[in-house]
Structure formats: C-alpha cells, structure tokens
Write a protein that binds this DNA or RNA. Structure first.
Lengths: 340, 340
DNA sequence: TGTTCACATGTGCACGGTCACAAATGTGAA
DNA sequence: TTCACATTTGTGACCGTGCACATGTGAACA
C-alpha cells in the first residue's frame, strides 16, 4: 500500500481560519489591517499565523486584486557605478514601500532589444517602470507599443516634468564648470555622455549655461560613451592639440581615461591641465591625482524616484516633495589655476 | 443614465477561446505547446491572440501551477563592479531561460538584515536563490529559518559542492601569485577580502597554496573589506614597514587604494613594489600604472549560475557542464622584477 | 419594546490560468 | 461493420486571496 506523500502544501488563509475558528475573510481582514476587527480576534488569528508560519501567497493576491506590486527597471550599462547605485537605491526604496522590483538589462540600445526588455517587464505585469537608459529611444518605443504604465526617468531636462525626477544635474554641471572658471580657466572642453541619455544632455546643458553666463567662449562638446576607454582615446586626440587648459568630463570613468592619456602625453595634472569629473565613484578619491568631481546622493535619488512613481499610480495623491536634490562639488587634486 | 465605463479588462484565455470558437483549455494548450493540437486550430488561436494583443497573466499562472518562475538574488555591496556584473549577467541568463529575477540588497550583513532580505524573497515565492554576499552568514540564516529553496553561491571553495559554482577562484589567485613569484618576488603580501565571503576565502587559499607549492615563506594575509579606502589605509601602514616587494590584492579597488598609498609614501610602482589585483574592472587598464590583474568572465558566470540553479529545481536533470571557468591573468604595468 | 445604526463577522463568487478526467473524432485492421 | 486505439478537444474543479453583499450583535434612543 503506497502511502501518498503528505504533500506539503503551504498553509492558506483557510487553514489559518479553521484553526482560529473564524472565517477566511476574517483572516484576510487581519492581513489587510481592516479597522473593524475585534482586538481579541485579531490576536488569535495572528497567533495561529505565527504557529503555522503562514505566508501570504503573492500570486493569489496579485490575481484577485489585479495588482502585482511590482515595478520594473529598464537599465543599460547596469554594471557601471552610476546605474548600479541607482538600481540598488531604487530597490531598497521599493522594498521599503512593499514593492518588488524586476530589472531588465539592455545590452544594446536598438529598437529590438528595447522592445524585448519592455515585453519582459510587461509580461510580469509591472505597475510602473523606471528608466535608467538612453531615455529618448526608450520613450519612443514605449509610445509605439502603446504601453500605458506610468514611468519615471531618473533625470530632468526640464521639459519632461510629469515623469522626471528633479535631480539637478544641470546645477551640478554648473558647479563643476564654475569651479574651473573661478580658478581662472577660459579654454575649457566638455566631454559629454551619449546624446540620448538625458543625464548627459542635462550635464552638457549645465556646462553650456554656466559658460554662457560667465561669458566664456565655448567649443562644441565631445560626445562619449561613459567608458574610461573612450576617455582615453578622446584624450589622446585632444592632448595633441592642447588648445585648452581644462576639461569637464560628464562622469568619473571618462575622466580617468583622460588622465591616463594625459600621462601618456607627458602632461601634468593639474599643472598643465585641470580635470573635473561627475558622480564621485568611491574610487575617485584614489585616482592619480585624486579627482575633483560632483557627488550625487543616490540613496535619496532612489527614494524620491519610487515616491514619484508610486504617486503616479492610480489612486494616489500627487507627491509633496519635489524640491530638486542638489549635488555637491568635491574638490580634490585634479584641478588648479591654469599655467600661463 | 450613467453608463458604466467599459472597464478595460485585459483579454483572458476565455476571451480568446470564444473568438476562436474553441474551449479555454485548447487555448491553454496552444500557450503551452501541447503536442496534440491540430495545426489549423493552433493557427486560428494564435491569430486571435495576436488580434487581441493577448498576454498571459503571470499571477494566474503562478497561482494555478504553484510555481512562480522567479529566482531571487541576495546581494551585498551591489553597486561595486564585481557584484554588479554578476547580477547583470544572472539577470540576462535568467531572462533567457524565461525566469524573472528579484534582487534584495543587504546594506549591513547582520542577522536581522539578512533575515529581512530573505523574507522579502520568500514572500515573493522565489524558486531559488543566488547568493552574492558573505555567504557563510547567509547560509547560517537560511538554515535557521529552515528555508528549503535551492540556492547557489557564486564561488567555490570546494567543500560546498552541491550548491557552488566552479569558477576557479583558487586557480585565478594561483595565477596571480605565480606571476609574482616568477618575476622573482619572495616577500609577498596578500590583501584579502572579508573572511566570510567565499570568494575572498578562495582567493586567499589560492595564494597560500601557490606560495606553499613554490616553497616561498608567507605572512598572514591582511583582511580587508573590498573598498579602495581600505586598500589606502592598509597601504599607509604597510609601506611604513617595507618588508616586502609585492602585494597581491584580492580585488582591483583595494589595489587602487594601495597604489594611492604607495605614491603618498614616495614609492614607485612597479619599481619599488609590484601590485596585482583581481577582477579586471574596466577602469583597471587606466589606473596609474595600468594594473596587472586577473580577469573573470562574468557573462559565462551568470549563465552557469542559472543553469546550475535551474538544475537543482525539482524535476530537472543534473547539469552536464560543470567544468570550472578559468580566469585569465592580464599583465599590465604594475608588476616588474623586484629591485635588489 | 421596537427601531436604528455602527460594528464585527460570515457566505459565495471572481480573478485567469492549469490539471485530471471525460468525451468526441479519426484511423486502421480484423 | 466493428472494435481498438491514438489523437484532438471539452468539462468542471481548483489554486489562495479579496470583494460585494448579507448577516448577526449589541448599544442608543424614542
């Protein structure tokens, strides 16, 4: 006589209900903190839950409520410090708010790949999407697929106000630029990020704004790809010309590449050339020379991002705190007055 | 007469069935590629699905099958390059295999925080867990909570064979150590990672093994925390002594901190001291000097990791390919024969 | 004593799939 | 023609939770 294995099904609210001598609905009410439950009943139910090691079944919940409590992150270059920190911060904030996070990485940013990643998120029934990627293209695809979930992008250029978080990248870039100008530099290059990243655009804008405001003539920014390798190659070319005394790089990695190229060219930093980065990755303080850069508070960024996204969900009030987060200039040893 | 809003419920399997003139079960069969479905029927159903933009509801599926198709990642220091790359690789591999990934970050690695993160994952009904964190402690907690999901750790020390992926960290560390010995170094320090990270332990083991095998006397490794800051402070102390000619650091960030401290101490690298790192982060080639290090293939790592995890799920065959992934030594300019 | 009302709890079904089993249809050999 | 059997399709229950609605209970009040 082959005995059936006592299939260990996880306890459900009905199991709890039976043992507590109440109906399953009462258990459900306890779970959801319904106001009108007698204290004694609630205590009894909670006790049984603890005894049974009861865990609510998320799938069942999602099914009956029609809400998944999951948000999606669409991310590119997610192993770099900036994106990685943002992702971590967002996940923490989401967990705090009782949400789950699913990340879809983009290896390439072509249409097809973006579509695939978005599909993955939609199949998962995400309630909202955070975009950490070349946002312009992603938005195009979102529109094409007529996807209707609320979404949030991490940075602001000013004209996407509904969806954008006001981390003041522009102000950060102005800070960096102003620092160089104040030191006496007048011929300053900007090594920008990819044009379709909103962060890159904002930092470039900040650079141009500040140069304009201070009446310093500018040259066209160089468009990079965020990597140290690009910074290095751009540097090799730039340092052949030497028609400038400072460079503002839109992230720390490219700044590192630039410094490498400067050494190859026999130039001293900051003696011959000043360099400013952006992000303040943890390694920046240990570069040679330690890098002057702009620090962002990624933790705060993540919290705000989730707050904004949740406020866009149906049935929520608009968010209160939309003050921009201000980045901070961290002065180290890669900047100095120009040699004349 | 207020007309009810035509509540836009997503089309279900039954909607498809009605329009295709079949039963809902037939639609389900089409979805799951059941073998005995007439081609013509299948085509018709697929057509209707396309017309309706039908998307299967994941929650319903999870509920009725009792399987969530989700795996969890438990990660610490997830914005550093190593963990971040692993996470990205695992997510890609999981998506490839039709799985969803949920990441829980650990800010601190105390009992409480690990429990909270594991709870988050369990509530989500993950089918398996990948641990990228101080694994020793996590395993303790897993046991305490009597959690029964299969789990996989990213690296192997050899004695955790069921759950561990054979990335040969030990061999990588031996490669690095051997390189220093071959250059003629005899007094070599090891700056290790935190003791409860299995990667750290494996790299230390590799170092000690190789030193032993080559009959070179060793000193006790220094236990660090993976950060460049720690490398810097350790370096300040070490370079006061100078009773050595080379250091093998168990990751690139700490190596960077060491190089920073060396410059502060007026030492030339590699003239006075040789340094080897581990990971080959993209910035390592642009350090000053460019760092000799050990490269791991994170993409392959992620794929294997998922393959191993899925093979541990009930109803799967044991995995075929358990050959260890071999890391590669990348020789740059931070190592040279010792000065005598 | 009956009426009203707030509070506390119970009943039954819906959510969108899958599963076990039954039924219908087709196919070929006796 | 009939039976055996494989192929294809349908029926109804079920997974665990939340919702709408019904019901029971006791206090306050006329």
């Amino acid at each position: 006589m082959t005995e059936n294995l006592p299939k260990v099904r996880a306890p459900s609210i009905r199991d709890v209900a039976r043992l507590a001598g109440v109906s399953h609905q009462t258990v459900s009410r306890v779970l959801n903190n319904h106001p009108s439950i007698r204290e004694s009943t609630k205590a009894r139910v909670l006790q049984v839950m603890a005894d049974l090691q009861y865990r609510p079944n998320r799938a069942a919940r999602a099914l009956s409520r029609g809400r998944s409590r999951t948000i999606g992150i669409l991310s590119a270059q997610s192993s770099e410090y900036g994106p990685a920190s943002s992702i971590a911060a967002i996940q923490d904030a989401a967990r705090e708010a009782g949400y789950y996070v699913n990340t879809a990485n983009l290896d390439t940013v072509d249409q097809e790949s973006i579509e695939a990643a978005l599909m993955h998120l939609m199949l998962q029934a995400v309630e909202g999407i955070v975009v950490i990627a070349p946002q312009v293209r992603v938005f195009d695809v979102l529109e094409q697929l007529s996807i209707t979930v609320p979404f949030v992008s991490l940075q602001s250029t000013g004209h996407l106000d509904d969806h954008a978080l006001s981390v003041d990248q522009i102000a950060g870039a102005r800070l960096a630029t102003r620092h160089l100008i104040d030191l006496g530099h007048r011929r300053i290059y900007h090594l920008a990020g990819p044009q379709d990243w909103i962060e890159a655009e904002a930092r470039m804008r900040g650079f141009l704004d500040e140069m304009g405001a201070m009446d310093v003539p500018t040259t066209a920014p160089i468009l990079g790809d965020w990597t140290a390798d690009f910074g290095y190659h751009a540097g090799r070319e730039l340092f052949g010309r030497r028609d400038f005394t400072a460079i503002f790089s839109s992230n720390d990695q490219m700044a590192l590449g630039l410094m490498h190229a400067a050494r190859d060219a026999g130039l001293d930093i900051p003696g011959d050339i000043s360099i400013v980065g952006f992000d303040d990755i943890p390694e920046a303080a240990h570069f040679w020379p330690p890098l002057t850069t702009v620090r962002q508070d990624f933790g705060e960024l993540g919290r705000r991002c989730i707050a904004l996204l949740l406020s866009n969900l149906p049935g929520s009030e608009p968010i209160a705190d939309r003050e921009p987060i201000m980045p901070r200039l961290i002065v180290r040893e890669s900047t100095a007055p120009p040699a004349f």
